[in-house]
């Protein structure tokens, strides 16, 4: 490894040491700010409490992503294939982003209940937009000279889409998916804050109310780990599907 590769782990280590030192020296109580060592002990020691909640949140996020993929890919494709439709729909897509989605969370709980449906829906609205927009712009980005080549070969829209447009748009699609996956966690957790009986967001609110700040931090640690895992899963999938250098 080059020295630059050591730099960010070293920085993290320095921050953790400072944090630990400051908390101990200044004798800050655990219910205000626990030291990193306590957080790690809690995160590991209370895994049996945290993990079932994490599984729920994870399921909400995954379902939200799948739902978003299942709707964003067809919508972007249809909007790409029919430009008048794109013209008609894109103002709504943009306007939908002006709505503070998190403000909808209480309503969603009223409409869809305290179960996972409201959280899945929340995650879905949040991921849907970046995937649709990035896929659409990736499809539209295709070099017109290639389109001419396909037209001269007598290719149908289906052939052109499968052999040219879709592979062409893949890098941008994945860029959108990566953004989507990282914000999906926020959506699910906020949904749980507003009203839930399980999930990591629910656990955070509960432990916060009981001043179990170390548990709150432990949950945040698990959430971050989950986000990191999903981020790298998308990365692995991207590497598997895009084995060429972009043009």
């Amino acid at each position: 490894m080059r020295p630059s590769n050591y730099l960010s782990p070293a920085l993290v280590a320095v921050i953790l040491v400072l944090w630990e030192g400051a908390v101990r020296l200044m004798e800050i109580p655990v219910f205000i700010l626990p030291p990193p060592s306590t957080i790690v002990v809690t995160a590991v020691g209370r895994a049996s409490l945290i993990l079932p909640h994490a599984a729920i949140t994870f399921a909400e996020i995954i379902l939200g992503i799948l739902l978003a993929l299942g709707t964003a890919i067809p919508l972007a494709t249809v909007m790409f294939a029919k430009p008048p439709l794109e013209k008609a729909l894109s103002p709504f897509l943009v306007a939908s982003q002006a709505i503070p989605v998190f403000a909808l969370a209480p309503l969603l709980v009223v409409w869809l209940g305290y179960g996972i449906a409201s959280k899945v829906f929340m995650a879905w609205i949040i991921i849907f937009f970046p995937i649709t927009v990035s896929l659409l712009s990736g499809l539209k980005n295709c070099d017109p000279e290639y389109r001419v080549l396909f037209r001269l070969m007598g290719a149908s829209f289906y052939d052109t889409f499968m052999l040219l447009y879709w592979p062409w748009a893949l890098p941008q699609f994945f860029a959108g998916l990566r953004v989507g996956v990282s914000v999906a966690t926020i959506g699910a957790v906020i949904g749980e804050w507003v009203g839930a009986q399980q999930g990591l967001g629910f656990l955070m609110i509960q432990s916060n109310a009981r001043l179990q700040v170390d548990l709150v931090f432990a949950v945040i640690l698990w959430l971050s780990a989950m986000g990191l895992v999903m981020w790298s899963l998308v990365g692995i999938l991207e590497k598997k599907m895009i084995k060429w250098k972009p043009i």
Binding site: E145, L149, L163, W244, P246
Partner: peptide
């Protein structure tokens, strides 16, 4: 034409 227009994938 001048550009080979090969698909990289």
């Amino acid at each position: 034409q001048q550009k080979d227009l090969l698909l990289p994938w």
